[in-house]
Simulated scan of single mutants.
Amino acid sequence: MKKIYMILVFTLFACKSGEGTSAIPQGEPLLQYSKGPCLGRCPVYDFMVYPDGNFTYKNVRAIGPNKEIKGRLATEEMEKLTSALKSELGTPSAFKRVRDLPITKLKFDTKKYEYHASKISEGLKKVNTLIEDMVAGIVVGQ
């Protein structure tokens, strides 16, 4: 009798429906942006923007609770972001790690950038500030 109940329980939980799956397509992201840890209380998160304007924000480690936020950027935000990414980034430069500074990683259009936000070119600083402002607006809006 126990075996029958166990088989029933396994059968019920083995065939879950697609509840909770995202309707947001998860193809190749247009932009991947990650903030790494430091020795203190730095936020650690991943932010991905897709060509259709959808985004995924995943809080890896922060002062608040860990969570994942999915949504869609406004058309003007998406245009501003793509314009800045295409015109301001330039070529990736050599990177030297410094202890206790969070590492930011940005990937756009087959180019990969690794940098400390305090030691970057003016164009990359504009893009970094734009992305951080977007992320702050998304997190505060939740």
Rank of each mutant, 00 (worst) to 15 (best):
E28G: 09
K67H: 13
F108L: 04
E79P: 06
K67I: 11
K112H: 02
G90L: 01
A94E: 13
L89V: 05
L31R: 04
G71N: 03
Y5L: 14
N66E: 12
A84S: 14
P43R: 07
L85T: 00
G137Q: 06
F55D: 05
F10D: 10
F95R: 08
Y57M: 06
V127A: 00
G71H: 01
G36S: 01
V127W: 05
M134A: 08
S118R: 15
T91C: 08
L39K: 12
K35E: 12
D109N: 15
N54E: 07
L30K: 06
V127E: 03
G36I: 02
P65N: 13
D52K: 10
P92T: 04
F10R: 08
M48S: 11
K126W: 01
A74H: 10
L30E: 07
K107A: 11
Y115L: 06
N59M: 11
T82Q: 10
A117N: 03
L101D: 10
I131Q: 02
R97Q: 11
G40K: 09
A14Y: 01
P43Y: 07
A74S: 13
A117E: 12
I120Y: 01
P102R: 04
F55P: 00
P51Q: 04
K70S: 05
A62H: 05
K80P: 01
I63F: 12
K126R: 15
N128Q: 11
M134P: 03
N128R: 01
K58G: 05
E114M: 10
V98D: 02
T21L: 09
K96C: 00
E79S: 03
Q142W: 07
M78A: 04
N54S: 15
S34F: 13
K119H: 13
E122C: 05
K125M: 02
C15H: 10
Y115S: 03
G53Y: 08
L31A: 03
N54Q: 12
V135M: 04
K107V: 15
T56W: 08
S93R: 13
Y57C: 06
M78D: 05
S87R: 14
P92Q: 08
K16Y: 09
K35A: 13
E114L: 13
E77H: 09
G90Y: 05
K105M: 05
K126H: 08
K67D: 09
L12G: 07
E114Q: 13
I24D: 02
K70V: 03
G137P: 03
E68R: 03
G71S: 07
A62D: 08
T91S: 14
V127L: 05
V135R: 00
L12C: 15
